[in-house]
Structure formats: structure tokens, C-alpha cells
């Protein structure tokens, strides 16, 4: 913020060190804008799953913030618990959980996401993996049964007893049944909290894009490569493989594309690296969906690509303007 420039009221000349042009951006502002962008998705999940969604969202968000506060207290660091980043981790984690997930599991996942996923690496800006997805992956390995128990949102919203059902991706994979687009877009299909309504997430994502907090290459590359790579298989055998539109509207693709893969900390910094990152993740996600053991591949696709971000950053460094090839090579070699 405007820390080192005093507002010049009189005619006196004020000398200060650079930077002289300051924007209003800071971590708080970005984080709370992202939370604002998540509101449609949160609202959709509350609409479909009522109390279950409210409890999960609250538990995850509060646990994440409290964990960040306590860990930083313990490490004797100044706290960043209220800058919104921990709250986002909690919210995103809750959005990846099935509505019937037990509270102790949600607490465990949030603690893991913030303490192991983020603080152990040094806090915001130093984490290698997306903390929310890491928490989700930990829960997937810890409670493999609980995290794959899905409920029918329509039944849940009219408050009858919970009806267990399969997600559209599992239906496609294990039973060969296709879910029509309209429910996929609108959201009354089974899935995790934020997985159901593609439109709600799209609204939030486009809002973030308008504010300039989302690098358009990442969602476009991710969804685009999912559609193209999935579409190739669809063209080969339409009766066996789902079509491109299904790929990008079902499951966690939208949430992953707008809120997970676009994480500023865990995505590459160079344009070429961003393309490789997003397209690679899309291809991985489709590969896991069609040929892997799990019905959904968004989580692992993003986590796997997160792991190679440092390599992408190193090898896709843009050429220095006007530099001769040899000089560029030498510069690249010496930094190794």
C-alpha cells in the first residue's frame, strides 16, 4: 500500500525511494476478492445440500484460519491468519468434499491442508502444492470410503432421508450412463459441494477474470485440453467415451480450472510454462478419468503438475531481449 510516499499537500519537494507508482493490490484485497468470487458456488452448494453444506463450509473455513493462527503462534511468526488465504484454503477444501462427509474428517483435512500443505513450507507464497487439494488428497487416502459416498442433491433438498447415488463421472466410467448437460450445468447431480453446479463456478471464475486475478491461459488451457484430448477419444468411439462438453462440465473440472489451477503461488510464472502446466494437467485429468482407477482425475492432475512447476519455470525462461543465443545458454547454465 501507499507506505513510503507521503501525500504532498504543500509545495515542498518530497524525496523518497522507489517504487513511486503503487497499485492498490495487496494480499488481503486479492484473497477477499477470491472469496467473493466463491460466493455463487457456496450459495449453490448450500441451496442443494442445505445444512450439511453450511456445516462443512463453516467447519473447514474456521479450522483452516485457526490452524494458521496456532501454527504461526507456535513458530513465533507474525500471523497472516486473517489475510483471507487460509479462509480460501478452507472454503476450497470444503467445496471438494462430499456433502455427507463427517465433521472430524473435515477438521483433519483442514488442519493438514494448512499445517502440512502450507505452513511447513514457510507459509503463503512458499507452498509447492495447492493446500486445499493437498488436504483433499490426504483425506482421499485417509478415509477412502467416506470421501466417495455421494448423495443425491434433489433428495437432500426436499429433506427426505439421504439417498446414496453415484456421481456423473462414476456413472460414465463404471456403468456407461451419460448424464444430460442441463443438470450438469445447473447442478442437481451428485458430487462434492462445489462439484455440482458448473454455472455457479463459471460466474465466480469470470468475475475473477474481469478483476484480472485469473490468468486466462490457465483455465483456457486446462478446459481446452480436456475438451480436445477427451474429444479425440469421443471421435474414435462415441458410444464408449464421453463427449468434450461432458468432460468440462462434469466433476471438479470447473472448480479446478477457475480456482485451483489458477492459484498464483503454485502455477508457473512464465507464459510458456503456464501453457505447458495447464495443458499437461488437462491431458492428465482426462487420462485418469478414462483409463485410471478413479472416476475423477482433476485433483491428482493439478497436484502432479504442481510438482513440476519449478522445472517449468527454469526451462521456459523467456529469452532476454536482444541476447545472443550463446550468452543466454551461459546464463541458463550458470544458474544451475
Amino acid at each position: 500500500m501507499a507506505g513510503n510516499i507521503e501525500v504532498n499537500k504543500g509545495d515542498s519537494l518530497i524525496i523518497s525511494s522507489s517504487p513511486h507508482l503503487l497499485s492498490k493490490e495487496n494480499v488481503h484485497r486479492i484473497m477477499y476478492t477470491v472469496i467473493l468470487a466463491l460466493i455463487p458456488a457456496v450459495a449453490a452448494s448450500v441451496y442443494f445440500y442445505r445444512l450439511n453444506a453450511v456445516i462443512l463450509l463453516l467447519v473447514c473455513t474456521i479450522t483452516a484460519v485457526v490452524t494458521e493462527f496456532l501454527v504461526q503462534r507456535f513458530m513465533k511468526k507474525s500471523t497472516t491468519a486473517f489475510d483471507g488465504s487460509a479462509a480460501i484454503t478452507g472454503l476450497l477444501l470444503a467445496l471438494t468434499l462430499p456433502p455427507s462427509f463427517p465433521i472430524f474428517g473435515a477438521v483433519l483435512g483442514s488442519v493438514f491442508a494448512v499445517a502440512i500443505g502450507k505452513q511447513i513450507f514457510g507459509g503463503l507464497g512458499f507452498n509447492i502444492f495447492n493446500p486445499a487439494l493437498l488436504g483433499r488428497a490426504f483425506l482421499q487416502a485417509t478415509y477412502p470410503v467416506l470421501i466417495t459416498t455421494w448423495h443425491d442433491p434433489v433428495a437432500a433438498s426436499v429433506m427426505v432421508d439421504v439417498v446414496s447415488t453415484a456421481t456423473p463421472l462414476a456413472l460414465m466410467k463404471f456403468e456407461g450412463v451419460m448424464t444430460p448437460y442441463w443438470p450438469l450445468l445447473f447442478g442437481n447431480v451428485a458430487g462434492s459441494l462445489g462439484e455440482t453446479s458448473a454455472i455457479a463456478i463459471l460466474i465466480g471464475g469470470l468475475f475473477l477474470r474481469l478483476r484480472g486475478y485469473v490468468n486466462w491461459k490457465l483455465p483456457l488451457g486446462y478446459l481446452g485440453s480436456m475438451a480436445v484430448f477427451g474429444g479425440i477419444f469421443w471421435l474414435i468411439d462415441p458410444s464408449k467415451y464421453p463427449d468434450p462438453l461432458f468432460h468440462i462440465t462434469a466433476g471438479g473440472a470447473m472448480l479446478g480450472a477457475w480456482f485451483m489451477i489458477t492459484d498464483m503461488v503454485t502455477s508457473p510464472t512464465t507464459p510458456k510454462g503456464q501453457w505447458i502446466f495447464a495443458i499437461g494437467a488437462g491431458v492428465l485429468a482426462v487420462t485418469i478419468r478414462l483409463f485410471g482407477g478413479l472416476p475423477e482425475g482433476v485433483m491428482y492432475s493439478i497436484l502432479l503438475m504442481n510438482a513440476i512447476v519449478p522445472i517449468l519455470n527454469r526451462y521456459t525462461r523467456p529469452k532476454v531481449f536482444g541476447a545472443v543465443k550463446q550468452a543466454a545458454d551461459r546464463a541458463g547454465g550458470s544458474s544451475r
Binding site: P102, L108, F138, A141, Y143
Partner: peptide
Amino acid sequence: FTPWVVMVL
């Protein structure tokens, strides 16, 4: 207590 399956993996 629901065991954490991940710990034996």
C-alpha cells in the same frame, strides 16, 4: 475413532 488408512500406506 475411524482409522486413517493413509498411515499404513
